[in-house]
Design a protein around this nucleic acid. Structure first.
Length: 319
DNA sequence: CATCGATGTTGAG
DNA sequence: TCAACCTCGATGG
């Protein structure tokens, strides 16, 4: 379920604790045994996210490409970075465990630390491990293990070992990512593409070849924040509207990566933004609010299926 | 405890 | 256009 910000957070986790280290790769589930064997014993060189895709680079020019799809997740344990301001506490950990921000990045002398963190759309702290490495739980497609940290991947849409030309082929199909591409260049590409197509803007925002990283939540919220009617053909947007969409996406993405959660009320409603930081309620302008009153004008939010996904908007403010 | 739906993508028909 | 992929929290009985 992750949109772009989650993948950037996961890549950062790998950059902090796996890059520069030799990695033991395996496939406890068995389905990725061949791929794991190609990575086993190699050193991770870099971790990079582009949109919802992640590339873990290993020595000898091998890349692990991962796309979490609808319900993929990484389970980290040992020496990892757990950010208390964004991670929720898992069920069995309700009382007791308190983890300070970046506490676990402080020092790693001696035995691996015991933090366990699931990173998907949400970040959830699980009960601490009692042994390292912990036994894999469930269907783990690939396990990446260093002397102090472990990462288990489950339920991904894509998980494959590829070479540099194949990496380039994947990247070539992706639209700009504000955290990857030069800001001016990304904006130019986005605006140019959007304003050349007759496809509804609601579909263009979800098209990863037009812009990388936007999913169903950000799509609906971006269109509301910019008061754009979702069915408007891309070519009917003004230059200013297209530019504003790109800049707002840039802003929302950076905020989400920083806080580890989507904060789409930010910038337009400071009170709601602060409330969203600590609670699960009142998080969105229109997403999943069918029939509820618009937070601005009170009109009922409407929903329809388009391109196989649910689209939410305010028929009055986004007329 | 069974069922549903989801913040996504691919490929068959 | 739709099923499949394969996971799990939310929901309902």
């Amino acid at each position: 379920m992750p949109e772009g910000h989650s993948v950037h957070r996961i890549a950062r986790q790998f950059a902090l604790h796996f890059v520069g280290k030799q990695v033991q790769a395996s496939s406890p589930q068995g389905r990725f045994a061949e791929g794991a064997a190609q990575l086993d014993g190699r050193t991770m060189i870099a971790a990079r996210a582009v949109g919802k895709q992640m590339f873990l680079e290993f020595d000898s020019a091998r890349f692990l490409r991962v796309h979490l799809g609808m319900y993929g997740a990484w389970d980290f344990a040992g020496d990892i970075t757990a950010d208390a301001s964004s991670a929720r506490i898992g069920q069995a950990n309700q009382r007791g465990t308190v983890v300070g921000e970046f506490e676990d990045s402080l020092g790693s002398i001696g035995a691996p630390r015991r933090t366990r963190l699931r990173m998907s759309e949400q970040e959830t702290l699980a009960p601490e491990i009692t042994e390292f490495p912990p036994a894999p739980i469930g269907a783990v497609r690939v396990r990446l293990l260093t002397d102090a940290s472990v990462a288990d991947l489950r339920g991904p849409t894509a998980c494959e070992v590829i070479d540099p030309p194949q990496v380039e082929a994947v990247l070539a199909k992706l639209g700009p990512d504000p955290l990857v591409d030069d800001p001016g260049e990304g904006e130019r590409r986005f605006v140019q593409t959007v304003r050349s197509k007759s496809t509804p803007i609601a579909l263009l925002l979800m098209d990863q070849s037009v812009v990388s990283g936007i999913g169903n939540v950000f799509r609906a919220e971006l269109l509301f924040r910019n008061r754009i009617e979702p069915h408007t053909p891309g070519k009917q947007l003004t230059e200013e509207q297209a530019v504003a969409l790109w800049r707002d996406w840039t802003h929302l993405l950076a905020t989400a990566v920083e806080h580890g959660q989507m904060l789409t009320m930010e910038g337009l409603d400071e009170e709601a933004f602060r409330r969203a930081l600590s609670s699960q309620a009142d998080r969105h302008w229109v997403y999943k609010r069918t029939g509820l009153p618009c937070r601005i004008c009170g009109t009922g939010i409407v929903m329809e299926e388009i391109g196989g996904r649910k689209l939410y908007w305010c028929p009055k403010d986004q007329a």
